[in-house]
Design a binder for these strands. Structure first.
Length: 460
RNA sequence: GCCGGGGUCGCCUAGCCUGGUAGGGCGCCGGCCUGCUAAGCCGGUGGGGGAAACCCCGCGCGGGUUCAAAUCCCGCCCCCGGCGCCA
């Protein structure tokens, strides 16, 4: 027992409540967990006492002669009746306690801005020289100067075409209508150059991170329920996760899930830490909570490819490793020539697993908005407690849970939308970021400098 | 998917048929002894509750039988071998 949240629940429940309040969640979940934990401990002690009495008698039975023996057996049976009554009560309380503990979100790091929703997110730095259409100047200032940043930008008098239109109408390299007919909305067909671009983005991110010493992993794309519960909260489960019918299997929504599972139920010696991984996988998401947001194009879709960073760390190292992860992602987006800002996510907008989260948001010229491309979280010991991933120190008997962190490196389709808007030229061509050319060269038919609109085959 | 064999405290292994506190070896940690090394001796080395004494649980997982299950019965998971199917 040294899950930081359980320790806080027992030693300072009021402090834990403060953390829950920061998330604008109902603080009574702390009272509930606290009450159930105490009740459980009391009941457990009682059950163990009765079991002890039964064990003592049970052992005596084999040693005593006959008439005595029958009497002891009767006595043991009596105790069993009492025991089974208490045990079913214990089981009930235990289940409730377990659920109450699983309902608790992570604590909130002191550096996290407090506020109920994403309007309280705080940009911490900007990079690049965004192209701002004159009609979006005011909006741009709202997203930069309002926070005290003077961001160098280029004002343009033509409005770039939105990524969804570029995809289907300008380039003609995507078909979401056909996909929605045969699979549903938020699916897509991509063709030719955009497929090469998708592949190149993955290779680019893989190359960059493996060069930095991250171990490359191709993980399972499906996991069991027990494992899924270890990495996400119930709400994410309902909003995001697809289930395989008739099997205890769920499609991963990110390689983060399988990478967390890689060391599930293991003890990790402190000398092995940090363990740094870079996983590549398809991601499957229901987007059930998204409503009708971003229905057009490939910004928010049910499946895409992603390269993901995942780190297991000693608790004392996790905060500096979080900076490393976000800075790795920044390196990638600077290479892609996409102007971005890093945002410190407000307490009310954090997912339950994260103690702190940075988003990397790229300026989208056609929308006049910075939009999320990368999400980087320190989940401290929230996931490792659930997955029983422990830290073994060389000295001392104290058991701890490792800290785990995750961050996007590149999510393919979303990054493609950012390229389509930012590297768009007035003539409708798309400039290929220099950093990707090396990876496109692997394919004979891949684009080199520009992606060109496909010529209309038949004119109406 | 079918047939057979297997899963025991970090590793190896005994116990299972015939139910009665899970034993041994190795490794590791601590202590003792020895002027170094080696050897030897003692203790510890799964999870949980408890301030502690101590207690409970633990033989892949979950049920059942029994006063009592590693051991008997049922279901499931995983590993090995064979057969089948297959990109």
């Amino acid at each position: 027992m040294s899950w930081s949240i359980l320790t806080m629940l027992r030693e300072n429940p009021d402090l834990l409540k403060e953390h829950v309040k920061k998330r604008y969640m109902d603080p009574s979940i702390v009272d509930k967990a606290h009450r159930l934990d105490q009740e459980w401990r009391k009941l457990l002690t009682l059950v163990q006492e009765v079991r002890h009495r039964h064990n003592v008698i049970s052992r005596e039975i084999s040693k005593v002669p006959e008439p005595e023996k029958q009497r002891k057996i009767e006595e043991a049976k009596k105790l069993l009746e009492e025991l089974s009554r208490l045990e079913s009560e214990l089981k009930r309380v235990e289940d409730e306690r377990e659920q109450a503990l699983l309902d608790l979100p992570n604590v909130v790091h002191e550096s996290v801005p407090i506020g109920p929703d994403d309007s309280y997110n705080v940009p911490v730095r900007f990079w690049g020289k965004p192209r701002v259409w004159e009609g979006y100047l005011e909006q741009f200032k709202q997203q930069t100067e309002k926070y005290g940043f003077k961001v160098e930008h280029e004002i343009i008098n033509w409005k770039p075409v939105g990524h969804a239109d570029v995809l289907e109408n300008v380039l003609g390299l995507g078909n979401t209508l056909k996909a929605s007919e045969v699979a549903g909305s938020r699916f897509y067909y991509l063709f030719d150059d955009l497929v090469f671009l998708d592949m190149a983005l993955l290779m680019y991110a893989i190359d960059s991170l493996t060069s930095k010493g991250y171990r490359l992993v191709l993980p399972p794309y499906m996991l069991r329920h027990k494992v899924m519960m270890g990495v996400i909260d119930l709400k994410a489960f309902e909003d995001a996760i697809y289930k395989i019918e008739g099997e205890d299997l769920y499609l991963i929504a990110t390689a983060e899930h399988s990478l967390a599972a890689l060391h599930a139920f293991e003890d990790i010696p402190e000398d092995d830490l940090p363990l740094k991984y870079v996983g590549v996988s398809p991601c499957f998401r229901k987007e059930a909570g998204a409503g009708s947001r971003d229905l057009k194009g490939i910004f928010r879709v049910h499946q895409f490819h992603k390269v993901e960073q995942y780190v297991y760390a000693k608790p004392e190292d996790s905060w500096s490793l979080m900076e490393e992860l976000i800075s790795n992602a920044e390196d990638l987006f600077r290479g892609l020539e996409l102007p971005y800002r890093i945002v410190n996510i407000a307490s009310g907008d954090l997912g339950a697993p994260a103690a702190k989260k940075y988003d990397l948001e790229v300026w989208m010229p056609a929308q006049g908005l910075y939009r999320e491309m990368v999400s980087c979280s320190n989940t401290t010991d929230w996931q490792s407690y659930r997955l029983k991933i422990r830290l073994i120190r060389r000295k001392g008997m104290i058991k701890e849970y490792v800290h785990t962190l995750n961050s996007t490196a590149v999510a393919s389709t979303r990054t493609i939308t950012a390229i389509l808007e930012n590297l768009q030229n007035e003539d409708g061509t798309i400039t290929v970021p220099r950093a990707l050319r090396k990876y496109l060269e692997a394919f004979n038919k891949a684009p080199r400098d520009y992606i060109h609109p496909v010529k209309k085959e038949k004119s109406p």
